[in-house]
Amino acid sequence: MQRGYAPYTKRLVVTASGDASSTIASAIAPCSSLTQKAAFFCCSVLAFIATSLLFPFTSIAIPRTIVLGANHSTPPYVIAETQKGLEIEIIKAAMNSQGYDVTLVFASQYRMASLLKSGKLDAVTPVTTSSMPEDTYISDSHITYRNIAVSLTSHNHTIHTISDLNQHVILAFQNAKALLGDEYRNAVGSSPRYLETPDQQKQVHSFFVQQDSVIVLEERIFQHYMQQLPPDKLTAYTVHKPFPLTHYHVAFRDPELREIFNMGLKAIKKSGEYARITGNYPQQCEHNDRTHGPFPTGQKADSQPLQ
């Protein structure tokens, strides 16, 4: 984080109208009676005013910047190395449409809450309605996550509900037990073997290599890492969707900023920019138990889900 960086400041807007020439003449006249130094200062100020008067109804805006806290890299949603990602691009586009720039600070969820409370951040993402920090204002939902279970098609697993996971070996993302609710926690408590991992790239790789588990993770994250594997490492797999969608939001310290973001989000959805951004990333499939593959040698994994 940039030390001493001040969160956003108000915009300066100057407008003018009326008979500019006569106003300028009368304003500059008093400068003749001043000392040289004072006259220079006076005329500099008046020159700025004169510029505004000569161009009625124009505005000079100093862009405002907000400081946004985001999770450490969770591709394709947040990619710290490039300061991009699906979620970051959506937030930047929404704020840019309203005249704001966005500076990013990457931190853990706990650290972000502390920085937000101390005023060093203007906003944090992503949060849910049940996990929003205290004394913040939550935005409209800007992104939706879909957690899935993935199994090898050859295993013929039936996973229609969360409780169906209780009979399978599970490799899940870190903190899945805490985030996916009581039903999930109870189900995997009966699993023959249950593990969680912070490394989701290895999670996806080991699924195709070891071929002995069901993995639980977010759908776009799975597709992101799967597409990095060579075709000869892929095996036909089935996507199961026993989990409800998770709608995420941005939490702001300032209710005005929250409303500005909401307006920007509506604007980019209306203009088509939101769809353009999401179209550059892996898509979510609407179908349950959808089989993908097999993958002949030389064929790349689908970049779009089968419909």
Rank of each mutant, 00 (worst) to 15 (best):
T125N: 05
A93S: 11
D122Q: 06
Y184S: 08
S118I: 03
A176R: 09
P126W: 00
H142L: 12
V105L: 02
H142V: 11
A123Q: 01
Q98I: 12
D135S: 15
M132R: 15
E89T: 08
T161A: 10
I88H: 00
I162L: 01
D182L: 15
L86H: 02
L179Q: 12
V150W: 09
N166K: 14
A178I: 05
D182P: 13
D182R: 15
S154T: 09
N156C: 01
N175F: 12
L165N: 10
T103F: 11
I170D: 04
A113R: 00
G181L: 04
H160Q: 14
S163L: 11
Q98N: 07
S131L: 11
S141Q: 08
N147K: 15
M132P: 03
G181D: 07
K117W: 01
Y100D: 01
N166A: 15
Q109H: 15
L116F: 04
D101V: 09
P133V: 04
N147F: 15
L104S: 00
V105Q: 03
N156T: 03
E134Q: 12
K177E: 02
Q167F: 13
T125M: 11
G119V: 06
H155W: 12
V105W: 02
P133A: 02
E134I: 10
T129C: 13
L171F: 14
D164M: 11
N156I: 01
S130T: 10
T103P: 05
V102N: 06
G119R: 08
A107C: 01
T144C: 07
A113G: 10
S108P: 04
H160W: 14
N175H: 12
A172I: 08
N147I: 15
M112K: 04
V169K: 13
A93K: 08
I162S: 01
I88C: 00
A113E: 02
H168K: 14
T103R: 11
K92R: 10
S114D: 09
L115R: 02
S163G: 10
V102I: 07
P133F: 03
A113M: 05
L180D: 04
L121W: 05
L121I: 08
L180T: 01
M95L: 13
N96D: 11
